[in-house]
Every structure is written in C-alpha cells, then in structure tokens.
C-alpha cells in the first residue's frame, strides 16, 4: 500500500471541502482523482503532502503517518501544485539545481529519471523560468518534483488549460514514470484523461462518487444510452428536455446523449415524437456510456 486515506474530513468554515474520504492506492499505481473545480482535490493533495491538517481521519503515504511522520513524508514525495510555483527569476537549470540541493542530491545523480522530460527543455536551461511557455513550465515543474527520486508523485491538475497535443505527451511521460515504479496520484478535470489511469475516484463537493477502474465505471452505467441528432441541435435539446419520459439529456459532441425513464424504451416512439415536434434528419442510435456520463449520472443523485 502506497497511499492509505482513512475517513478524512476537512472543512473551511461552513464549507465541507472533504467529507469522509477513504482511498487506498497500491504501490506503482497510476491513480486519478477526477472532478471539477471545488471538488476538494487540492485540499486532499495538501493534506497528503503534509501542508494541511485534516479535521478528522488519518492517512499514510509510503508507510509514514501524515501527522507523526510528516518530515519523513516530505523526503519521499514529489509534489507539483496546480499553480506554477517555481522561482520565476531563477533559470531553468538553477531551479532544478535548487530542488536537487535542498533534497541533498545532485542533478547528475538522478538525471536518468528526468532525462525524457528534461531533455525537451534543456536547450533553454539558461532562460528564466518566468519566461517559459506553459508547456515548458509544466515540464520544468515535473522535473523539479522528480529530481530527488520520490516514491510517490502528487500532481495537482498538471494538464489544466493545456492543449490536447501537450496533454497527450504529458500522459505518455506519466506512463513511463509509472514503469519505473513510482506511485502517481494525479487530478484532472478532463474526464477523457480518466481512461488513462489504472483506477480513478470520481469526486464532487468533497464526496467520493465512485472508485474503480475506468472500464468498470463505464460498465456500471445503469441505463441504455442513445445518441440523438437532428438538423437543429438547440431545438432538439429543448424538445428532448420537454419529453415526458426523459431521464437525462446531455450534449455529447456531435450528438445528444439521451436516457429514458422506462425499462422497455422504444427509440421509434421518440423518433415519432421528435418528427411531430418539427425536427428533421433525426438520428437515434444506441451508444456506449463514457466516464463523463457516469459522473453526471452519479452527480445527479
């Protein structure tokens, strides 16, 4: 067991940021915390990295208790916070050397671990960190979080605001780190990234909605889902929402994902209704649930 979270709660005034959270992450696992802004992801990261005390519950990281052994934990973990927090007026190389030094190591000693990532920003090693592009800052922050060879890596929304190409590259880097035996806890608001994790926790308003493998989470979706399309999407959404038997209506890319309240739902009946309401080029087809469908279904309850 690499991370054990036992009934952790934390509130800020009246707001329950975390409400009785329990998660166990195995050694070498790539575990995702999936949820929107305000779900409590950052609070959980700050508790696990010993920067914040929980109100209730206990947790351990790499075998150390987050309260009794907080100093030991700090030596064993790498943390990349959501907000860029390196020294803007130090150069790329100075930042990296700084983090290596405070952890009592050198860049040379652990260069192997960061090579893949650092090699992409090494041509700019004399540039001040504040002058880097978003993608380069992200790579430098990850290098700095790794330079002391941590057992557990905490990444708080590393891909927020990053374009799909850079996001894909970032996840490929994470997979290679995982292959080196590092446990990774990563949070993201992008549901499509959830599929790249071994297991995920869906989290909203400080509560866990579900924990499982991405595949199992999708398979547990309780209802048949249909893609519905028509010539005018706005009118289609309006008419689907007005349909007496609808259970959920959510735009999903090209189509609307529709579920019905009834068990024996007949798509032809919906087709007739939509035709009658003036929609044209109607398309209704059974489709598979995604993580986002599951998230929204659970969040609705």
């Amino acid at each position: 067991m690499s991370i054990r979270i036992d009934h952790i709660s934390k509130s800020y005034g009246k707001v329950n940021a975390l409400d009785d959270i329990s998660i166990q992450v195995d050694q070498g696992e790539l575990f995702g915390l999936i949820g929107p802004d305000g779900a409590g992801k950052t609070t959980l990261f700050r508790i696990l990295t010993t920067l914040l005390l929980p109100d209730h519950g206990s947790a351990s990281v790499a075998g150390y208790d987050i309260i009794a052994d907080f100093k030991a934990i700090r030596k064993q973990v790498g943390y990349m916070p959501g907000r860029f927090s390196l020294y803007q007026d130090l150069t790329v190389e100075e930042n990296l050397r700084f983090f290596a030094t405070i952890f009592g190591t050198t860049i040379a000693e652990n260069y192997d671990l960061i090579r893949d990532i650092y090699v992409q920003i090494e041509p700019f090693k004399n540039r001040r960190a504040g002058k880097l592009s978003g993608g380069m800052k992200q790579k430098l922050a990850l290098s700095c979080a790794l330079i002391h060879k941590p057992k557990v890596l905490f990444l708080d929304e590393p891909t927020t605001g990053v374009d799909p190409v850079s996001r894909k590259e970032f996840w490929e880097m994470l997979k290679r780190l995982q292959d080196k035996g590092i446990t990774i806890l990563v949070s993201t608001p992008y549901m499509d990234e959830a599929a790249l994790c071994d297991r995920i926790a869906l989290i909203q308003d400080g509560k866990i909605l579900e924990i499982d493998t991405p595949k199992a989470i999708v398979e547990h979706y309780p209802k048949p889902i249909f893609d519905v399309g028509a010539h005018n999407t706005y009118l289609l959404i309006e008419k689907l929402n007005a349909y007496a038997h609808k259970h959920s209506v959510f735009p999903f890319g090209e189509y609307i994902h529709y579920t019905d309240q009834r068990d024996g739902f007949d798509p032809l009946e919906l087709m007739a209704y939509l035709k009658n309401e003036g929609l044209q080029n109607i398309h209704i087809e059974r489709t598979k649930a995604t993580i986002e469908d599951t998230f929204m279904e659970l969040a609705k309850q």
Partner: peptide, 24 residues
C-alpha cells in the same frame, strides 16, 4: 476565451445550452 475550463460536466453542458440559445 476558454469559458468552461475546470467547470463540472453538468454545468459545462448548461453553459453550452446558453450558448445555443444566444446563437439561436
């Protein structure tokens, strides 16, 4: 400009329904 970054999936869709309405 990136109006929905970090917004939960249900609200993100409600936001798009508002966009459709305005465009309509």
């Amino acid at each position: 400009d990136e109006p929905t970054g970090g917004v939960d999936p249900i609200t993100r869709r409600q936001f798009w329904e508002m966009i459709y309405k305005a465009a309509n």
